[in-house]
Design a protein around this nucleic acid. Structure first.
Lengths: 157, 157
DNA sequence: GTGGCAGTACTCGGATAACCTTTGTCCGAGTCTAAACGG
DNA sequence: CCGTTTAGACTCGGACAAAGGTTATCCGAGTACTGCCAC
């Protein structure tokens, strides 16, 4: 099982945007250069965050991205869901119902598949943990100088 | 993020093998026909479970697979780890250290990346939940007739 | 000075290509069971 | 009747092909800011 690296990009970008405040929007090219990422592809990922309302984009000259709402109200779940989608990692294909002559034998399939519910329970715990953490928490956990260093770099122009 | 369907196959196969007991080993072709799955590919997945000790295989005529230990001692985490691997879904590529002139600016990277630890915490919750459930629990949760129906089918052949 | 106009910079969205992972197939080698065969 | 041989069935392991998803790039269209020009 693998999570795309877009999630890492998205989280770090949110963190950066949170530190910079939303006085001036930050263009994609700036963020891409800062993290050394492919600009065009990063744009695609940030656009996904815009669609989810996590970020807002302002077009035109001096445009760019800024946070869509306060860092305390952006959970990691929001970012992951926006970029990776809301589908569950485990997809039950109901192979129990494909068993030979299942219909004829009158199997009882009114109950949900036990395997699926077990996996879903685990995934729920994961989602709950993601929803419990916000971008503001990330800001608080970072070492003291990080925010300052970021701001200095972006102020330089 | 997506989990391979091999996990679903593996869990259902473990459940079936648990119901049948380990008097007679069950060949791959039998399981594949029962669930309507590609036999050769299913073998690959079951072999992964053998390597992890979840199943044991007996070669030769009348050979096949049986559980490697009691159903109470096989957790869902064991099956998932055997088939999907033990790598974490979120892989931190340390993009914070790629920031322009990070080394020169004397950034403090002794601490672990906050984004990575946050994601890891969520994944830990997921793993803990998987480790808390066993194949025996799946057996108990299944509707009453399921075990019986499975045994009848395998006795016939 | 003020209003309109063109130019520039940027985002948006889709089309497209390269790459990697997953999915699926196939075959030879090794191994065990069971039946056939010979003494 | 008993030991040996042979055939069959199955697993094992790796090599290989196909499919789908992720990663990445590019370009045209739309939009907002900026500077220029005319009045």
């Amino acid at each position: 099982m693998r999570m795309g690296e877009g999630v890492e990009w998205g989280l770090h970008c949110c963190l950066t945007l949170a530190w910079l405040g939303d006085e001036h929007p930050v263009p994609t090219a700036r963020l891409a250069a800062w993290f050394d990422l492919p600009p065009a592809y990063l744009t695609k990922r940030l656009q996904a965050l815009v669609r989810a309302g996590v970020l807002t984009s302002t077009p035109g000259a001096k445009g760019g991205f800024r946070l869509g709402r306060a860092p305390e109200r952006i959970t990691l779940m929001d970012v992951v869901a926006a970029i990776e989608g809301t589908e569950e990692a485990f997809r039950c294909t109901e192979i129990r119902q494909r068993t030979e002559g299942a219909a004829a034998a009158g199997g009882d399939f009114r109950h949900a598949c036990g395997v699926a519910t077990a996996m879903r329970r685990a995934e729920l715990a994961w989602r709950r943990e993601l929803a419990a953490q916000t971008v503001a928490d990330l800001m608080a956990a970072a070492p003291a100088g990080a925010a300052e260093r970021t701001r200095r770099h972006y102020a330089r122009g």
